[in-house]
Design a protein around this nucleic acid. Structure first.
Length: 304
DNA sequence: CACATTTGACCGTC
DNA sequence: GACGGTCAAATGTG
């Protein structure tokens, strides 16, 4: 079958394709944010359905971007790999039988005793609404950036075994590889927190925190947790933000994921609060970013 | 003081 | 011994 494009222009086409995919991914992320603004009790079924659709869209973007990136580097594709081996927690007994294939090299055999799957995203884990706590950081051989280890905050409270490894694999555009281990068994307090925080009005704003530095650290060196104490941070940020902005405090978003901001890297307006380690984004900011469609969408959304 | 992060040490696997 | 993953004491922050 003949290629539709000359070989010399393939890299250009690929770059354009990447740009479009990234733009689409960011738009889907934005849409997800907007959806989160609505109250769960009013449009629960509709919202759940819409969110599931967005998750699928984001998943497709992740896969597409991963495919493109993997083709570019000619490396073994390891995106979105579901590994169900050793799912009972026992260590593999036939490790000596394994051959030195690319597959066995791609996946570390060490303590790989649970279900794992990997995603490559512009934002490290934008669609991840769980609360994580960092428990380690390790420099990886032949890797430019260190690998960060997170576990579920409710590991001990609720026995949730979910973990994730986040590693930056590309600078421009920022690309992260997030490897998840085990599914969450904890109650999702992120969703609860949305109900707790200011959802008594139609402005059911979400409070997000993020970090401006590569390794997700605040200027003071402390990492912003992913919504560990939602009500407290919400209150504080509302106070801070309300002092500096003219609009209602409930107009603001703050990223729930520390690396989310990088997915909005080309939106210069976001950089205004960079030094505080928070992104301030009002409805107006969102409107400028997504264009006139936003008005129409909001009207449709709020009027049902 | 409570809680989260940092980071060196330790462990398991190769 | 090298390497990646995890632990836990030390440290930092509000």
């Amino acid at each position: 079958m003949e290629s539709c494009c000359p070989a010399s222009s393939l890299s250009t086409v690929r770059k354009r394709l990447l740009d479009e995919l990234i733009l689409g991914q960011e738009s889907a992320n934005m849409l997800r944010v907007i959806l989160c603004k609505t109250q769960m009790d009013k449009r629960c079924k509709l919202q759940l359905f819409a969110q599931s659709l967005i998750d699928k869209i984001l998943d497709s973007f992740d896969k597409s971007l991963s495919i493109l990136n993997c083709n570019e580097s000619n490396k073994v594709s390891d995106f979105l790999v579901m590994d169900s081996s050793d799912s009972d927690g026992q260590k593999s007994e036939d490790s000596t039988k394994r051959t030195n294939t690319s597959e066995s090299l791609t996946f570390s055999k060490r303590r790989r005793t649970s279900k794992t799957w990997t995603r490559e995203t512009v934002a490290a884990s934008f669609a991840d609404s769980h609360v994580w706590r960092k428990y380690g950081q390790k420099g990886i051989r032949n890797a430019e950036h260190p690998r960060n280890y997170f576990r579920c905050t409710y590991k001990y409270d609720q026995g949730c075994q979910a973990r994730k490894l986040v590693q930056k694999i590309q600078d421009e555009p920022p690309l992260y590889r997030t490897t998840y281990h085990e599914h969450h068994t904890c109650k999702n307090l992120y969703e609860e927190s949305q109900i707790i925080t200011g959802n008594t009005t139609k402005d059911s704003s979400i409070i997000w925190s993020f970090d401006s530095h590569e390794q997700n650290y605040k200027p003071n060196g402390k990492m912003i947790p992913t919504l560990p104490k939602m009500p407290l941070e919400t209150k504080e940020n509302f106070q801070i933000l309300h002092q500096n902005k003219s609009s209602s405090p409930s107009d603001y978003f703050i990223s729930p994921d520390i690396t989310t901001f990088e997915s909005f890297g080309h939106f210069s307006d976001f950089s205004s609060a960079f030094d505080q380690g928070h992104v301030i984004c009002s409805d107006m900011d969102i409107e400028r970013m997504v264009g006139p469609v936003f008005d129409e969408f909001l009207e449709l959304w709020y009027t049902g």
